[in-house]
Amino acid sequence: MKIGIVSYGAYIPRYRIKVEEIAKVWNGDPSALKGGLKVFEKSVPALDEDVVTIAVEASRNAIERGNLDAKRIGAIYTGSESHPYAVKPTSTIVAEAVGATSDMTAADFEFACKAGTAAVQVCMGLVGSKMIDLGLAIGADVSQGAPNDALEYTAAAGGAAMIIGRNEDEIIAEIECTSSYTTDTPDFWRREGQPYPRHGGRFTGDPGYFKHVTNGANSLLKKLGKTAKDYDYAVFHQPNGKFPERVAKSLGFTQEQIEPGLAVTNLGNTYSGASLIGLSATLDIAEPGDRIFVTSYGSGSGSDAFSIKVTENIKKCAKDVPTVEKLLSNPIYLDYGKYAHHKGKIKF
């Protein structure tokens, strides 16, 4: 039995702030920051947007792209580290808003930046065991960076939804295999009740991101007996533009392979949405037969790696659903004052 993505959809708020604008407030050096991060601007939610609205828009795009009946969805899992409620599921609101039936299961996931891919894996299990027909896995975030923290330059807003199924006539991208790598590595966290996350600075690099992405990716490649050369595209979690480039290179992937899925430069880090938005951007341009390698990373820490093969069915996708490129176009730029208002940094 094959399991795979039967449709996908992304959503990115229209608002952006440029790195220069943030740097201006904190006397940062914009060219050094841009060079160091390889991020030029980041998305910011509208005043009335949050993880729920982003998850709903992404899910509606996925349902529309696949021309699917929402009543077939048997499970909805929304991965995020910025759910609007501490207690009260995002996923039930998504279910109601996409017109799903009540005869399904739902829950919210949190695993820093990889909660979205964790949701994909759980849906694969439920679909593969025939407990459900279709599963809706969402990664979405409106992440917070404390004022003048390095994260403030990248913490962005956006999300993507993957609908997982097993009907060969519907699968647009078969998930050939997935594997994960998980350890207890506290490189980034946010305590209950705290508005901003804390992180281990440079500790987030080698012991965190690089170790987990590399081990997760290698374990999957080994399992499948494949190398980087067997793939047309690769997507890695993108907290900034530098990390995915470095890890890709070390794993033997080329810049060309990761370029289509590298949305971070003009988007920032959408946390739980990041790998799935990268995958969406890649699916937007992929052709039948293309192989896509995806590895997410979530602090705390873990990585989920996927080997995906695009099928002929991708040609059947609805064409008028916005691509990631389209979602990134036509931004509305904010100054820092308005950005602070949008992010709730100004208290009423």
């Binding site: 009335d48 947007e49 949050d50 729920v52 609205t53 709903v56 828009e57 509606r60 808003a97």
Partner: peptide, 10 residues
């Protein structure tokens, strides 16, 4: 002007 529905916080 033509408009389309979006899901937002009220």
């Amino acid at each position: 002007d033509r408009v389309k529905a979006v899901f937002r916080r009220l």
